[in-house]
Amino acid sequence: MAIVKPGLASKEILEQTTSFAFRDGTVVTYNDEISISHPIKEINFEGAIKAEELYGLLIRLKKEDVELEIAEESLRIQCGRVKAELRLEQEIILPKRKLKKKWGKIKNPEQFKSFMNLAMQTCSSDMSQPKLTCVYVTSDGGIVGADGFRVVHCQGHGSPVEDYLIPATGVREMLKINPIEVQLEKSWIHFRNEQGTILSSRRLNDSYVDQTQFDKAMKVKKKEKITFPDTIEEMLDRGKVFAKRGFDFDEVIEIEISNKKIVMRAIADDTKSSIEEDASIKCKSQISFMITPSLFEDILKMTRTCILDKGGTKLKFTMEDKEGGVCEYLIMLVAK
C-alpha cells in the first residue's frame, strides 16, 4: 500500500481522503489533486479504512502472514498474537473515474521520465501564476517547464495524447510509478505502469505561454563557453545540505563566477547556517545565478558545459541523450 500513500490528504477536508478505499480489486487513495490506485488480488472486500491506522499497523507486524476477517462495520486483523479491529466504512464516497479501455503508449518511457524530471524542477511554486506551476507537454514531444527567470525545453519522441498542462507536484508523484501509458479526460490525466498502478492528476485547462516570446528567449549568441570543474558535484553535494526547504522545488544554491574562480553558496532557511566553497574555473566573465541543486546535478550528468550570451544576461545548457532527444536549460543571470 506504500505505492498509493502519496494520494492521501494530510488533513481530511473531504471525506475519506485520509483513508485507503478498497473496491473492484484495487486499493485507492484520493486527495482532490491526485488519485492513485493499485490492484490487490488478495482483497475480497470493499470499504474505506483510515490509512494511518491500517498502514501504521501493517508496517509494524513482524510476520508476513496476516489473517483478515470482515465484521459488519470493521476489519479484524490477526497476525500471530496480535489482534486488531479497525473501523470499516462500507460506503465509499470517493469519486470513481471511468477510464477508457484504450491507453496511449509512451514511446520512450525512460526519456519521458528524464525530461519530465528536468522540467518539473524548473516550475514555479507561485500559485498566483498557475501556468508556471505546471509542466507543458505537447503532442510532438515537447516538454517545457518555466518559472519566469529560467526555462527547460526538451524535445523527444511524440506524445500519444494532445497537449496538456500538468502540475509539477503531480509530475513528482507520477514519476515514482514509472509510467508506460497515458490517457486524457477533460480535467484529469492518467498514467499507468506495467503493474497496473494508475496515477491520476488534475490538469490545467489553459494555453501555455506565448510561443513567439518563448522562442526569442531561447536564442543565445555565444560570448563564452564555460566548462565546470571536476569538483562541482562534490561542492553541490555539500551545498545541498544547507539548501533544504519545506518544499523541495524551492531549494536553491548560488553560483558565482569571477576572476577565474567559481564560488558555491547556500544558506539554511530555518537556522541561517551557511556554507561557501570555491574552486578554479577557466572563465573570463563575471556571472551569478541561482539554481536548485538536484536540477544542477541532473544537468551535469548530461553536460558539463554551457554558453554565456553576448549580452551577459543568459546562460544556456544544451544536452542530448542516447535516443536523440535534446534538452535546453536557459537561466536569466542575477545582476551584481
Rank of each mutant, 00 (worst) to 15 (best):
M1E: 06
K5E: 15
G7V: 05
A9L: 12
K11Y: 07
K11F: 09
E12L: 09
S19M: 10
F22S: 06
G25A: 08
T29H: 05
E33W: 06
K41W: 00
E42G: 06
N44R: 09
F45R: 09
E46D: 13
E46S: 15
G47A: 07
E52D: 14
Y55L: 08
E64A: 09
V66T: 11
E73S: 12
E73V: 08
L75V: 12
I77T: 08
Q78P: 02
V82D: 00
K83A: 11
R87T: 15
Q90E: 11
E91D: 13
L99I: 13
L99S: 06
K102V: 14
W103S: 07
I106H: 04
I106F: 09
K107Y: 01
E110D: 14
F112N: 05
N117D: 14
S125T: 15
D126V: 12
S128T: 15
K131S: 10
Y136M: 02
S139V: 11
D140S: 12
G141Y: 07
D147A: 04
D147V: 01
R150H: 03
G156T: 02
H157R: 12
S159I: 06
P160E: 02
P167T: 06
T169V: 09
T169D: 10
G170P: 01
V171Q: 00
E173C: 02
K176D: 09
V182S: 03
W188H: 14
I189N: 01
I189S: 05
H190G: 05
F191G: 01
R192F: 06
R192G: 04
N193I: 06
G196A: 09
L199P: 06
L199G: 06
S200K: 04
N205T: 14
Y208H: 07
V209T: 10
T212A: 10
F214K: 03
F214W: 08
M218W: 09
K219M: 10
P229N: 02
D230V: 12
L236F: 04
R238V: 15
R238Q: 12
K240G: 03
V241F: 13
F242T: 00
R245M: 07
E251H: 01
E251M: 12
V252Y: 00
N259L: 09
N259G: 04
A268L: 03
D269W: 07
S273C: 07
S274E: 15
E277M: 07
A279L: 03
I281Q: 07
K282E: 15
I287L: 12
I291T: 05
T292L: 07
L295W: 03
E297S: 14
K301W: 04
T303F: 01
I307E: 10
D309T: 09
G312T: 08
M319K: 01
E320F: 09
K322I: 11
K322L: 12
Y329C: 00
M332K: 05
M332W: 02
L333F: 02
V334L: 12
